[in-house]
């Protein structure tokens, strides 16, 4: 399995254009941002004053905040584009025919998911470290405090939240990869995989609107509760638990006769649903791939 993982890693990291434009751009962008911001702060006293009047800067929040990106809709689309290339590429480059006889199909798919998740987590860990260090430099230039003080309790709390945030990004990647893999399997092309994957994500994100309309017109507003079962909602809910220690409260029919409908779910509910989604998508991908004819 270690060899298979390494093979997958070489393929993912070796596609420098795709990995660079869709993943490495974030840590590289962070470095560029801090270089420019540091220069501005160093040269401009008004910028330093402005920063001092800003919010309180906490390294714990900076380090964890970065991990929200893979969970929001835009971040998920970028992850989906990346994972779609990885899955659909095998069809478009006609490389499955070299790979499939060399190992079990289920192992090939499982390792692809694992390597993709690990790759994204590594990139965002780097991004998180750069972001935290970058703000340390900026706050030092502006002479602003950058807490909290490092104590055992702070580290323990931070460690838990950080692990959850990274785990959530990993989960988000696996869900994006699941959509991408299914799209790739049906379209067998990179462009088709990206478009179909985006379509799946859009449908998922916009399903709340569709459910609201159906609920409104048919006067069965409770149908909107189905949205609580989508990955998008649960990713945001878990992120909310990590960042604010509270659920992401959502009232779909605000200021209407159905305003009593509120989504406010526990961390356990969302974690369980996300686990179900990940397991379901991977199982479906493996099952379909096992039965698929590799004709190209």
């Amino acid at each position: 399995m270690r060899n298979l993982f390494r093979a997958e890693w070489i393929k993912i990291a070796g596609n420098r254009w795709v990995a660079g434009c869709l993943i490495w751009i974030f840590p590289i962008g962070a470095v560029a941002f801090f270089a420019v911001a540091g220069l501005v702060l160093a040269l401009s006293s008004s910028a330093r004053t402005g920063l001092r009047q800003d919010e309180v800067f906490l390294w714990t929040e900076q380090a964890i905040g970065v991990w929200n990106f893979p969970n929001n809709p835009v971040g998920r689309l970028i992850l989906l584009g990346f994972t779609a290339v990885v899955f659909a590429g095998e069809y478009q480059w006609q490389t499955w025919k070299n790979v499939v006889p060399r190992n079990r199909r289920a192992a090939l798919i499982l390792i692809k998911f694992l390597a993709l998740g690990a790759f994204v987590v590594l990139a965002f860990s780097l991004m998180s470290a750069l972001w935290t260090a970058g703000w340390a430099v900026l706050t030092r230039i502006a002479d602003v405090s950058y807490g909290p003080r490092i104590t055992w309790a702070v580290l323990q709390d931070f460690g838990e939240d950080y692990a959850l945030a990274a785990g959530l990004a990993f989960t988000s990647t696996l869900i994006a990869a699941g959509y991408a893999a299914l799209a790739a399997m049906f379209t067998r092309s990179i462009l088709g995989g990206v478009i179909a994957g985006f379509a799946l994500t859009f449908v998922e994100n916009l399903s709340i609107v569709a459910l609201m309309l159906i609920g409104w017109f048919l006067d069965i507003p409770r149908i909107v509760h189905l949205y609580r079962f989508t990955p998008g909602y649960n990713l945001i809910n878990v992120a909310s638990w990590i960042n604010d220690n509270a659920p992401n409260t959502m009232r779909p029919f605000e200021e209407s006769k159905y305003s009593d409908i509120v989504f406010s779910d526990s961390l356990g509910f969302s974690v369980a649903l996300l686990a179900l989604w990940v397991f379901g998508l991977i199982a479906l991908t493996v099952t379909l791939f096992q039965r698929q004819d590799i004709t190209s």
């Binding site: 060899n3 298979l4 390494r6 093979a7 070489i10 393929k11 070796g14 596609n15 420098r16 254009w17 480059w93 006609q94 490389t95 025919k97 070299n98 790979v99 060399r102 190992n103 090939l108």
Partner: peptide
């Protein structure tokens, strides 16, 4: 057909590792 973005040697490494015979 190969991964065009990888070198010849890297392609062989990928295939050998996939077959667990690197």
């Amino acid at each position: 057909t190969f991964y065009n973005f990888l070198s010849g040697r890297r392609n062989l490494e990928v295939l050998a590792r996939t077959a667990n015979c690197y």
